[in-house]
Write a protein that binds this DNA or RNA. Structure first.
Lengths: 336, 336
DNA sequence: GTCAAAACATGAAACGTTACATGAAATATA
DNA sequence: TATATTTCATGTAACGTTTCATGTTTTGAC
């Protein structure tokens, strides 16, 4: 894949149109130029099929109009959705997006940050898991779901409120004793607030609960064990579950089915994130929905904001509860 | 987001080290330089925290080591997976990836191709839907799932074989009369081969079938209508379904449940793509699995291949059948 | 008809790199 | 020791833009 042909340059256009280099530059950039000149230059551009060379532009302007997105992968539906909406938000502002799938690898994360400093991108939006990530002072950076110090703005949903809403919802729907399930690998600190919120919600509604950490290695086995510990005569000792992610809820739901435990009749389940696998479809489970499009928009806004002083350290966006079939509720979707 | 500080340049390094500009360049690029010089230059680089400016490099070399991926979005799991694996394959070759979500918009698709010609990328990998897409002769392009003429290589899975396998599987599992469901918006031509393969498979196994096109606007309603037309005394007139995508199968499965039709007892269902929503989980349905990692690798290989002559017009990669609970089969997953 | 002022095209310099021709120093040959 | 040869740092010329000081032309005023 070698580019051995040489594209026409401004010089070629200038020669073709019989004008000076600077005049062509002005026409290309929409600056005022005499009409007779403009017409000739435009004709020459069309004739030669001229396109500006953006390296040269970048070299002069020290700007690429390119932003890097650091994200573990695009397969997880939550990351996939974020990626898409950030891409759209950047396009709207005429920025390009470099996708950097880090695979949760701190080494790769750091490598991409270095890349940004090599002027390959103007800024970075990052959902990273490297607690020691070093970000240069003059490289604009916006973090998602993870505070990285006072200098770096962080965009997150209101994780605390989400947990609280989940607890209150479960209580309001008749639950007496709930289980809070989370996975072990919560390296990011923001989602821990979900737990705090859930606890606060339980407290305010008088809902008792217990917490269980499911190891990422084999959450299935761990959850099976958890169930067998809490089952007696075919009845579970808890009647509500809050899973810290929809992903986990998805696992849990399968296992509950395997145990012939009915959802939501025997136990109600609420997840977190608001994943809908095939676009406009229903939610996998009742869930706390993160406002992904808003978060994306906010990340881009903050990153491109010129005034460094106007960058708040943490932007918290509101979450909503959505019914997804795993809670008792007026089944508003069934009659569609 | 302005970059107002000025990073150190090779000139600065040269001055600091007391050597010539060219010497610094050589050190940076790992070319042979006398040891005493190398040491001094390396020290200066560290001291000034020098990073090469890649615009300048790009301007000289006319290469960005960046590839654009044109894809409708990253939310659809199939696209999401393709995006991820292409990203990984490009990284392995030390290329960067510009993500361009086109939203099925031919105008945007064309715009991105233009961008590539502006030297912003070295080549394009595209899963596009614009039948009139104009691609410049000297812009390397690899198409996915869509033949775009003899000059442009296309990477696809063996759609024909996939359809055939699906038909044969249904027949082998006892189906007598099948339904072939596809969505209306199959603008790409490659997936049409799935139908041809299915027909061939039906023929060879003596399986009768009928075809139904479900409009993308409201596939649910259309399928409901289809079912009511084919149901008598609570019994369907067909006992096997082949859906042209897992996405469609996902819809269909929900509707079948709503109609209280048991899967796979009453009707068996096979999809296409091999989607697994949460990473390593089970398939949504029994399905024909596209070898996405291989396809990604192949796209990158073809794109970066220097020898234009060695680019075949169509690379067809093998598919496999995977059990996903919607067909009658030794239930190998249940005892896990 | 002359002069001042405004309007606007011009072309050189600079951005940071790489490549190449140059020349100086070190080594080998006679 | 003098010359031929190699080695290798040097510095300049591109790469294709943008910007800005310069110079030319046109317009308007007296």
């Amino acid at each position: 894949m070698k580019k051995d042909f040489s594209a026409p340059t401004m010089k070629d256009v200038a020669r073709e149109a019989g004008v000076a280099l600077g005049t062509v530059s002005k026409v290309v950039n929409g600056l005022p130029v005499g009409d007779s000149y403009r017409i000739r230059v435009e004709a020459a551009i069309r004739k030669l099929n001229y396109q500006v060379n953006s390296y040269a532009q970048g070299l002069k302007a020290n700007r690429t109009y390119t932003v890097a997105l650091l994200i573990p992968n695009t397969i997880d539906p939550f990351y996939a959705s974020l990626t898409y909406y950030i891409n759209v938000a950047l396009m709207k502002k005429r920025y390009r997006m470099l996708l950097c799938a880090t695979d949760y690898d701190p080494r790769q994360e750091q490598e991409y940050v270095m890349m940004a400093q090599q002027n390959k991108v103007d800024g970075i939006i990052g959902l990273t898991y490297n607690p020691h990530l070093i970000v240069d002072e003059n490289t604009p950076f916006v973090a998602i779901d993870r505070s990285m110090g006072p200098k770096i703005p962080c965009v997150a949903c209101d994780n605390f409120a989400g947990g609280q809403i989940a607890a209150e919802k479960l209580a309001d729907l008749g639950c007496k004793h709930a289980a809070f399930l989370r996975s072990g690998s919560a390296l990011s600190n923001e989602p821990n607030k979900r737990k705090a919120g859930f606890e606060a919600g339980c407290l305010s509604r008088g809902l008792s609960y217990e917490m269980k950490i499911l190891n990422d290695g084999d959450p299935i086995e761990e959850f099976e064990h958890f169930i067998s510990e809490h089952i007696q005569d075919g009845k579970l000792s808890f009647d509500g579950i809050f899973c810290v992610t929809d992903r986990l809820a998805y696992h849990v739901l399968h296992i509950l089915h395997r145990f012939q435990i009915r959802v939501p009749e025997d136990v109600q389940l609420i997840g977190f994130d608001g994943i809908r696998t095939f676009g406009s479809m229903d939610y996998h489970c009742s869930t706390i929905v993160q406002p992904v499009p808003d978060m994306a928009e906010m990340c881009v806004d903050l990153l491109l904001r010129e005034n460094t002083m106007a960058k708040p350290p943490l932007v918290c966006l509101p979450v909503t509860y959505a019914y997804g079939g795993t809670t008792l509720e007026e089944d508003i979707h069934a009659d569609r």
